[in-house]
Every structure is written in structure tokens, then in C-alpha cells.
Amino acid sequence: MPNLTLEDIARQAGVSRSTASRVVNDDPNVSESARKRVQEVIQSTSYHPHPAARSLASHRSWMIGLVLPRSVSNFFIDPYFPRLTQGVAQACNQHNYTLGLFLMETKEDERRIFPRISHKGLLDGIILQTAQMEDKIIDRLLKSDFPVIVAGRPFNSRGISFIDVDNVNAAQGAVRYLIQLGYFRIATITGRMNSTAGIDRLEGYKKAIMERGWEVDEGLIAEGDFSELSGYAAMQRLLLVKPDAVFVASDTMAIGAIRAAQEAGLHVPNDISFVGFDDLPVASQSEIKLTTIRQPIVQFGARAVETLIDMIDNGIKPSRRIIMDTELVIRDSCGALQKYVDKAKLEKVNDYGSARIY
């Protein structure tokens, strides 16, 4: 039915125009019977409110911004970000919001874009990918008193709403599992040490080593930057100290690390074992299926949207802090000492958290 107006919807539903408007804009001050009649007419006629009119009526733009600061330079090559964006986009669609993507690749981008996104008008709220230590965009957004949720723990979390996983506990569980399989020279390839994810996952590695009563060997720690190339380069350095297992702080780096080990003539998992972090599709699709920590990336993005909408509807205070669950997914890459596997499966699951065997 073409060119329907809100007045047409109200007349067919037998309600006033203002009541129909409140239903369209999700106003709670409508009786259930009236809401049901209006929604049935909307569904039967495929009516869609005019975006500009909807914004004027609700004093909202119905747009959420996903903002990636300058320090997130690998958006187009790291498979983590498309999955995060997928979750954000799906939740925006479900809640009738439009998603805007803002990439601040240079200082000039930040100078031009920041004033547009930091005040109500263009956006109703912002999901900000957590920045590196030296990036001050989070501080600038907080000063604007604007609904913002950060994806990933920020360095200074006081008064900031954020969503993350418990990176320390998850990494600790991964290394505990390797210890329980019987490995002694467990190395790690970290993420960037100016990122909270890199710092927290290294802390988890160290905690697992120390709780075993071992000293942390700095020679078994190599820094990467979450890219496959950095995992490859870090593994080349670690090969000189002959680890028998490696906890890698991302699946993407783990793929690079495994390639370096294979090029050095090592068999995975017979000669050296690996555990990654993320459970990206590549973890289960590669030739050697990767044992890894699964974090719910798509759900992570969706939960960020839902939390941000709650902030838009109900105010930014108190700050929200959402910690989502992780899971150890056991596949082929950590099976070098098979005699320990059955024992670990049956007896030790509770020592490293939720686990799933593949």
C-alpha cells in the first residue's frame, strides 16, 4: 500500500495520530491493546516511518557510530574486526538503528571527524574500539558527556562503560592446560604491550607459570602486534630457545607462528604445540586445527549495542561493565603429549575453566 502516512495508520487502527506516533517511537505510555492494533496495521501494510519525521518526533537520529581510533590500523586485515562489526550491525538492525562506521586513520581524520560525532545530532551513541595507551580519544569523548561504550577494557576504566572478556583468567587457563598436558618450556607470543589485551594476556601467562612454582623466563616471551607476520617473526626468535609449547595471544599470530615452526622442520603437534586466542574461523579451517580460547566476538558486538541503547534510554550513569565468558576449545594443535590428554579431559577441566573437545 504506497504512500501511507501516520494518519492512515492511526485511522486504520482506530487510534489518534499521537498514539500511533508513540507506538512507532517505542514510547511506553501506550496501552497494550492500542499498541497491538497499531503494530498489526503496521505489519499488514508494511508501513515504514519517514526517517526524518521519526527523528524529529523522538529527538534522536537513530544512528549508532562504531569508531575505530588511529591506533587500530589493522581493521581491514585482522579477521577479528569484521566479526565484531557483524555483531554490531546485526543488533543495530534488530533495534531499528542505522550503523555508521568511522575510521580515524590519521590525525587529520580525527581532527575532522571528532567534532561531528561527539555531540548529539549525528549519532545517538558511540561504540569505541579500545585504543592503545598513548591514544587520548577515550578521554576526549568522556569530556563530551555523550553515551559511549568501549569495546575492550580501557587503560583508565573509572567512570567508563566497557565490555570485554576476562583476558587474564582466560590466558591463565590456556597455559594451565598446557602445563597439565606435561609441557615444561612454555613460551608465549604476546599482543602489543601498549594494549590492554596484550598486557592482560601476558599477565595470565605469567600467573599460570608462577602458580606452578616456576620462574618466568623472559627469554620465552616474544612480543607481536596481533598480525600473522608478527607471529611468524616472534616464533622465529623463540625457536632459538627451543620451547615445547607456545601460548599465542591471537589466532592470527598463531597461524604465523605455526608456519615458522613448520618451516624450521618441526611437526605440530608432535614436536611443538600451540594454543591461540579468539577462535576465529581460521582456527578450525586451517590444516592443523588450532586449540584456542573462544571469545564470543559476534555476541560481544551485539551486547555492546544493547548496552549502549540502555545508556541512551536511561542515562550514562552509573557506568556499565560487562564481562563475557570465554571457553577453551581443544583441537589438534596441542596434542604432542597424547598420554596426558585423557587425564586432562576427565580430571582437570575445572582447573582451566569451561572446555570443549573437538
Rank of each mutant, 00 (worst) to 15 (best):
V268Q: 03
P281D: 14
Q12S: 09
R294K: 09
I288H: 14
I127K: 09
N74C: 09
A304G: 13
N93H: 12
F247Q: 03
V341A: 08
F76Y: 09
R111I: 02
S58Q: 10
L56S: 12
L128R: 10
E134L: 11
P51H: 09
S227D: 06
N350D: 11
Q90W: 05
M63L: 11
D135G: 06
A131N: 03
E108G: 00
D244F: 08
L122A: 14
I163V: 14
R112M: 08
E347F: 14
A57I: 01
G152Y: 07
D27K: 12
S286A: 14
I186L: 07
D278T: 04
K120W: 11
L101D: 01
I293V: 15
R192C: 10
G198Q: 14
H50A: 07
S73F: 15
L4I: 11
E108Q: 12
S354T: 10
S55Q: 14
K36A: 14
A171H: 02
Q172E: 13
L240G: 03
S161A: 01
L238I: 03
S319D: 12
M133W: 06
A131Q: 05
A302R: 15
Y340L: 02
V349G: 14
V241G: 09
T291K: 03
I113T: 14
I189N: 00
V216R: 06
E7V: 12
L178S: 01
M1P: 10
L202C: 15
H267W: 00
D342W: 09
P115Q: 06
H48T: 13
H48S: 12
I163N: 05
P115C: 08
N167C: 11
A170F: 02
A302C: 13
L4G: 12
R116C: 01
V38Q: 15
T106R: 08
I64C: 11
L328P: 04
I126T: 08
P269C: 05
L123R: 13
R212Q: 12
K348C: 08
I312H: 03
V298Q: 13
Y97W: 04
D278E: 12
L239Y: 05
F155Y: 08
A222Q: 03
K242N: 09
P51Y: 07
F274S: 10
E32V: 04
T292D: 04
S31Q: 13
F300M: 12
G159H: 03
